[in-house]
Each structure stands twice: as C-alpha cells, then as structure tokens.
Design a protein around this nucleic acid. Sequence first.
DNA 1: GGAATAACCATACGGCGGTATGGCTACGAG
DNA 2: CTCGTAGCCATACCGCCGTATGGTTATTCC
Lengths: 200, 200
Amino acid sequence: MAEAVHRLIAHDGLDAATMAAVAREAGFSVGLVQHYFKSKDELLLFAYQRITASLLERVATITARGEAAGQPIRDILLTGLKELLPLDAARRGEHRVSRAFQARAMDVPAAAAVAEATAAMITGKIAQGVENGKECGEVEPGTDAALGAVELTALTDGLADRLYREPDRSVAGRSGAEAAEAILADRLAALFPGECRHYA
Amino acid sequence: MAEAVHRLIAHDGLDAATMAAVAREAGFSVGLVQHYFKSKDELLLFAYQRITASLLERVATITARGEAAGQPIRDILLTGLKELLPLDAARRGEHRVSRAFQARAMDVPAAAAVAEATAAMITGKIAQGVENGKECGEVEPGTDAALGAVELTALTDGLADRLYREPDRSVAGRSGAEAAEAILADRLAALFPGECRHYA
DNA sequence: GGAATAACCATACGGCGGTATGGCTACGAG
DNA sequence: CTCGTAGCCATACCGCCGTATGGTTATTCC
C-alpha cells in the first residue's frame, strides 16, 4: 500500500493520493485500506516513514559497500550524497514524494518529526564520517564536523531541488548532473584534503 | 487579495487557501474573488508571482543599498542571501508560502515556470556579482561564476529549509541562525578572497 | 465444531470546495 | 437619459473525498 501511495504521489502529486485512488492502485478495496489505517493521515504518515526508511537503508548499503572496499571516506560520502540527487526517473519520483511530504510537514507535526529525524540521521552520519576522517588523517584536526555536515546536507538538498527543477540546464559547459557532482566533489575535497594513513 | 492568500498559507498551509477563506480573509465576497480570477489556479498563480516579485524586489533594494554604501561584493551578497533565510516570523511565513508553492510547482507547470524564473534570477544576480568581483579584484580570475552561483543558491536554499525545520537546533555551540550565517560567510570568503582595488 | 477475530468488500453519508447563476448597484460614455 | 460595463454579492449546484456502516468470507484458537 505504501508503494501505491509512493507511485501515486510520484506520478500525480500528493493530492492524487486519495483513499479511493490508493485502493485502486494497490488493487484493494477502500474498506481494506481503512481496515489497516484508521485515517488517511495515518496512511500517509506510514508511507512517509517507509519511504524515508528505505532511502536511508539504500544509502547505508551503499556506504557499507564503500567501506568494505576500503574507499576513502571522502569518496564514500560523495557516493552517498549523489544517491540523494534525482539523477534518474526513479529518484526523480522519490524526490517528488519526499518534497511533497516535506511540504506537508509544515502543517502536520507528525510528518515534521519524521522529516527532522531523517535530516538528523543524515547529518549525523556525515558528521561521523568527518570525525572518522580526523582519526585516519583525511580531515584536518581543527575541522568542525557538525558545521561541515550541516553544510553538506544543505548543499545536497539545494542541489537536488535545482536538479529536479531544471534537469537539463547546463552550467558552465557541464550538464546539470555533472555540475552538481562537481560541486559536491569540490566541497568534499576541501573538507577531506588529506589521505587516509591506513593506505599511505 | 494576494496578501490574503499569503497570510492564509503562512498560517495554515496551502490547503487553507480556499476560495471562501481567501474571500473572508480579504474582507470580500466569494463572488468578487471570482470576478477578478477566473479560477482558483489563476488566483494562486497570481499570488505566487506577486510574492516572489516582492521578495526579489526586497533583495534588490538591500543590495542596491549595499552598493551605494560601497560595500565589498562579498558583503553585499552575504546580506542578500541572509535575507532569504527564515530568520524571523515574517520570513518564516514567507518561506512556508514559498515552499508550498514550490511543492505545487511539481504538479502545475505554470507554477514551475515561476519557480524556475525566480531561481534563474537569483543565480543570475549572484553570477553577475562574481563576475564583477573578478573585475574589481575580489575574485580570482579563474573562478567559474556560474558554478559558484549555483552552489551558493543551493546552499542557501538548503540552509533555509533546515533553519525552518529546526530553528532552535544549535550547531557546534552556535545557534542555528549563526551557524547558517557562518557557513554562508565562509563560502563567500572562499569565493571572494581578495580586496576590491577601488578601496585598496 | 464453533466462536471469535481478521481479512475484505460495497455502498451510504455528510461535508466541503470550486464553480455557475442571477441579480443588484453605480457610473461613465454616447 | 440609458445602456453597457464593472464592482459586488448570496446562494445554488455538483462532484469528490474521508469516513461510517453493515455485511460476508476466511482463519485461528479453544
């Protein structure tokens, strides 16, 4: 059902996610949807939680793979952040859903809590990466991890918005996607100027 | 009327901006609203345009003042970008309205056009500032103005979101607002490392 | 086996939102 | 003067949406 919600929002916006539409899309009756969710709010909140959870999980898998391969933290973070950009149809849909819920979060406290928790999760992971970078030598000791993490998440968020809005607008010769990646890579390089001692 | 729409959205979200509510808030009858706007879409689009226009105008005024005072471009841009952050109640309301419409822009092409034009305006102004900075010596000649402008707008956007979401979350000892300003100032300082020749 | 609980459905209901309709005043142009 | 147009209003209409209701079929547990 949550997937039906996802599909509907990704395709026609939040307003298209009506009870009847969700039931139809999922192949169930309206009554069944009601059987599992007391109210529409509950359904939407559940769907939101599921979607963000699956996003976070996907990123976690990717970063875990990077760690296992012994990549520099800088590269792992870049891959993880790039995953958050709407670079293909699936992620464009995801971005649309995510933004729809973030807008909704401005009116619905429960949704705001999910949004906040998700954001905290991401910045937390990044800050952890920076701290780890200090220990292994990729990051200068004096670097403020929390501040850097906030900057990176904000930057990624903003780039994602722009990429969604104008996927084909090129910047300085580069495609939009390339420009976004270049900007992220540049900032990460600035934040992680060193090499990890373990592979020196 | 557009102001009524603004107030309603800022206070209770986009869904609260119904024809009846707008009429009531503006002190008119529903019929009058219909008299001026053929449809609700038209009303909302008009309100969106007005709101973004007034925002851009406000920023233009501020930057013009900075120019008149002979401030370095770096400082002018910082002031301008800070104006885009939801740092007080009024701007929090504005941000809410703006985000509501941006979400709507994902479904309504006309709204998307407004959003795109606004974004283009802002990045354009910043890119212009960077170019000017090259001429006056604040910016290194090799700097890519377009890329820097995209980065700054994306960063500001993301910081605005975060600031709205968690206005009281402090970062590394700083308040959220201070952290956002510090991040912006830092990036601007990196992009505009030099001093303007005219005041050397 | 049978009762209780869960899965599942069709449909009715009440409300509300956007739009349509018809009418009333005022006023400036011809 | 009067006619047309703009400003303005109350209300009716219709459709849609969330939810409530009452029921039927499975499943599970004593």
